[in-house]
Simulated assay, not measured.
Amino acid sequence: MLFQSIRTMRVSDQIVSQIQCQIVEGKLTEGQRLPNETDLSKQFGVSRASVREALSVMESKGIVERHKNGGTFLCRFCLETILKAIDIPRKPDIEMFEDLYEARELLEIKVAELACRRADELDLMKIERTLCLMQESVDHNDSGIDSDILFHQCIAMATKNQVIAGMVRSLGTTMKEMRVRTLAYPGRLAKCLQEHRDIYLAIKNRDEKVCCSLMEQHFGEVAKIRAAMQLQRKNDPPRKKPEKV
């Protein structure tokens, strides 16, 4: 059994990944006993604590089991467990936010396509009403976040798919704080309103291709603003620590 030395920060995740690779490749099979923690730590080139953590993770996933009389064994159907699992290593919050943003973009582009096919007159009136609300936000220098969320939610409801509508609502509210910041970017709210109007007209005209393209551009504009904001934060001078009295 050959393992690679661990040289990255998330040691336990790397151990889990390597063992899972061995199982998928057929080099490790169900019921097989793994080396003890000391031997594994030597093969991986890491501490026993890291190995112990990795084994605990795999035990919680149903990949290995620890016997009372000693020894760690691969569970029955461990291969099937790995293949069907949504097994993505833990990510920092900033990377998780990027995943959420990517998921929301992909989902809402498809939502726009379905809305073009399924929106009825009431749906169109609801979407149009959110445009009026955003115009009021522009006129009164409000954040516009509520009308922004409602716009996308009404489009999702127009798909007539309750699961999709729930997903859009969940992703939208989860990312509310960032949406507030991007809408506050100079000139963004008025530009966002125009993008919303164009998307609404495409839905009204049942033009799926144009609507999907407009929704993609809509998210593209937001991505540009987020990139500009991140660059600005990097270039900002570091805050001075308060002097001790």
Rank of each mutant, 00 (worst) to 15 (best):
V57K: 14
R33S: 12
R117D: 02
R104V: 00
A54N: 05
R7N: 15
M229I: 07
A85V: 15
F73I: 05
Q135E: 15
I109S: 13
N161I: 09
C21K: 05
D39G: 05
R129K: 13
C212Y: 12
S50C: 10
S213L: 09
H152Y: 09
R52T: 09
F151V: 00
R117F: 07
S17A: 10
E113A: 11
L214P: 03
F44G: 05
F151S: 03
N141G: 02
M58C: 05
E105K: 11
E105A: 04
S147E: 08
I109T: 15
V16K: 14
R226C: 00
M96E: 13
H140F: 03
K224I: 01
Q20F: 00
L40W: 09
L2P: 00
L106K: 12
L201P: 01
E136R: 00
T38S: 04
A202W: 13
C154H: 12
E59R: 11
K191A: 09
R179N: 10
R169G: 11
V11E: 14
E243R: 01
A103Y: 13
T8A: 04
A228Q: 15
A158M: 09
A49E: 00
T81P: 06
Y200N: 06
V138E: 13
N205K: 10
L193I: 05
L171T: 05
Q18C: 04
E30T: 05
S56V: 09
L79H: 01
K110L: 07
E59L: 10
I164T: 10
A165Q: 02
E128R: 03
I155H: 09
V11K: 10
S170P: 00
M157G: 01
E53C: 05
L133M: 07
R118S: 02
T38V: 14
C192Q: 10
S170T: 08
D13W: 14
G45F: 03
A227F: 11
K160P: 02
R10L: 00
M125F: 08
E243Q: 03
M167P: 04
Q162S: 12
Q20W: 02
V11R: 11
V138N: 13
E216Y: 11
R52K: 08
A49V: 15
F3Q: 00
A103T: 04
N36A: 05
T38E: 11
E65S: 06
M157E: 15
T38R: 15
A165M: 07
D236V: 04
A227I: 04
L83P: 03
T72I: 08
E102H: 14
I86A: 10
L83R: 13
